[in-house]
């Protein structure tokens, strides 16, 4: 709609309708050539995706209705229908793993996202040494989870690890020593802290990119309007990062559900299954117990679960394409 008090400007209208796409001006032949180029460039990526993602997934759907077993090669592989699914859903250890995974995700997603945003804002605020901090926070992200876990295993050792020494000294010997990984109530919180520490740098970098794309004049306008630093954060920064929030929360959720490495190295799912996770559950049944059909069914269930959560999240927080 145009304002009646200002006649529509031909330049503005022209600028809007002429999209940068090639198709608006292209003839049929050039459009066909264009389509061929697109297909040609997409093919390698699509082939790889098909080979390493779609095909294995279809295979596991197929395997999930069999009793295929890696060790028992000579036994005939039989169609068992939904028997694998039924026994998974009856398995208490599955539900324990699902609950642990959910617990982990429910804490890490908000905590890690909020912490990442806080660090990004601090690093972005022009404090001295900000490049150093950016590097320091990002460093754990580039380390392999196995390496991180081994380092932390040393720190967390009970009763004479570094962390226990620290807690003991700070509390004047009143607190500790704690068995960080061996105690049923402490193991999961410990895993959560370690995971947040390791992963927060990744989200921080994404938030940093988001922060740097905010028009600096908005903050000046807000200063003129009398907004304090905190009000600027609330009314400019947070809403401007909407699309970044959506991405960070989705990505962190998926990463949280994939929890495996640190648990497998540090606690082997224990004590008493208190840190066992869905990925570790299906990994164990497939590669340690060699029940491939059973594990495939677990992985299909896992896929459906993550898909469902992602869809719900997407529906709740829609990306705002207007901004």
């Amino acid at each position: 709609m145009t304002d009646p008090s200002h006649p529509p400007q031909p330049t503005a209208a022209g600028g809007r309708s002429a999209s940068p796409g090639i198709t608006t001006t292209g003839t049929t032949t050039s459009r066909r050539a264009n389509r061929r180029t697109v297909a040609l460039m997409l093919t390698p990526a699509l082939l790889l995706l098909a080979l390493f993602l779609v095909l294995p997934f279809l295979l596991s759907i197929g395997l999930s209705v069999t009793n295929y077993n890696l060790l028992n090669r000579r036994a005939v592989t039989l169609f068992v229908g939904l028997a694998n699914y039924a026994s998974i859903l009856e398995d208490e250890r599955f539900w324990q793993a699902a609950w642990n995974t959910a617990r982990f995700a429910l804490v890490t997603v908000p905590v890690q996202s909020a912490l990442a945003l806080l660090l990004a804002v601090l690093v972005n605020s022009g404090l001295p040494g900000r490049n150093l901090f950016r590097g320091v926070y990002f460093l754990p992200t580039v380390l392999s989870m196995a390496v991180v876990s081994v380092i932390w295993a040393g720190l967390l050792r009970a009763p004479q690890g570094v962390l226990n020494a620290l807690v003991g000294t700070l509390s004047g010997g009143v607190l500790g020593p704690y068995d960080w990984l061996g105690d049923e109530t402490l193991a999961m919180p410990t895993i959560i802290v370690l995971s947040v520490w390791q992963g927060v740098g990744f989200q921080m970098v994404i938030y940093l990119a988001g922060l740097q794309s905010i028009n600096a004049e908005l903050y000046e306008a807000a200063r003129i309007d009398g907004a304090s630093r905190f009000q600027q954060f609330l009314h400019i920064t947070l809403p401007s990062l909407r699309n970044t929030h959506v991405f960070v929360v989705l990505a962190t959720t998926v990463l949280a559900f994939k929890l495996f490495g640190q648990v497998d190295v540090l606690t082997q799912g224990g004590p008493l299954d208190s840190t066992n996770t869905l990925v570790r559950y299906l990994f164990n049944s497939g590669f340690r117990e060699h029940r491939v059909g059973f594990a495939s069914a677990a992985s299909v269930l896992f896929f459906l679960l993550v898909l469902g959560i992602t869809l719900v999240q997407r529906a709740l927080v829609r990306e705002d394409r207007e901004i």
Partner: peptide, 24 residues
């Protein structure tokens, strides 16, 4: 102040843009 690039708050309506200073 009126800025060259307008510097309107993109996620607020026209009404909220104009009201922002008074709300603050």
């Amino acid at each position: 102040m009126v800025f060259q690039s307008y510097a309107l708050y993109p996620h607020m309506t026209v009404r909220d843009n104009m009201a922002f200073g008074l709300k603050m």
